[in-house]
Amino acid sequence: MMTVLRTGFARGGIELRQTLTTFADLWTYLFPAAILIGTVFFMRDAHVPGTSFSLGASTLPGVFGMGLAFGGLVTVAQLLVVEREDGTLLRAKAAPNGMGGYLVGKAVVVGGMTAISLALQLVPGLFLVDGLHVSLSGWLNLLWLVPLAFVATMPIGAVIGSTFENPRNLGLVMLPVFGLVAISGIFYPITGMPGWLQAVGQVFPIYWLGLGMRSVFLPDSLAVVELTHSWRHLETFGVLAVWAVLGLSLAPWFLRQMARRESGSAVAARRERAMATVGR
């Protein structure tokens, strides 16, 4: 167990460092941050209806929450599918405790990447946009919210990643996720949705992560524009915990099934298929 954690953290650390020295990876950090900050900057004169609070400032924390959900759900699923196809997973399977080390490593690298992206959006955001502030209780909330966000989303991402064979089908995952973002009150307030859509939005973690992040970075007076006019910390914790339990109970079985199917010829077959698709 200790070996798994040690090798996994080493693996995650190395891969995280690689993302900081590879041009394409740096781009995926900086590009969304630049777009986001730019958008928020040009929105700085608009205000939350009925208040004098900047609309940009009120949107930004929700986007941080979306970033957490994307890291846990989409990035984990993507990495699992891609690295299964390219044989990374089979290499892990061929080493003692390799699968454990691989999975811990993925959790570390996705956690780290998400944290870096968040920092790249947060730090300029704090300077460019008025109204964001974090109190002591805000920091304390961040301390349970961020780890819980990862535990609630990464296992679900792993389940999604283990069920898709072909990276070119990943769009099927992205589409519903974008749909969920639209109804989760990230860019457009959930209070403006019809009741049944509000209910759907509140089943999934994206809404709660957005709400949680808003509670951290926005003044308490802005809670009035939320559903039930409150930050609903207890409900946030409850829904995310349910997703965490669900994910953690499903993921091991799915991952084992996925790992069992890995062999040299399985990877070779996928390589052939990928080559055939690229060649066309």
């Binding site: 090798t7 080493a10 190395i14 690689q18 290499r91 080493a95 040299g264 990877v267």
Partner: peptide
Amino acid sequence: VVLQSWRDHGKWRVRELLKHLGTY
């Protein structure tokens, strides 16, 4: 097991990868 690699661990450096896999 000697596996036929394709493009796994592309960003890793040769020594780094062998050293890491050795720790298992």
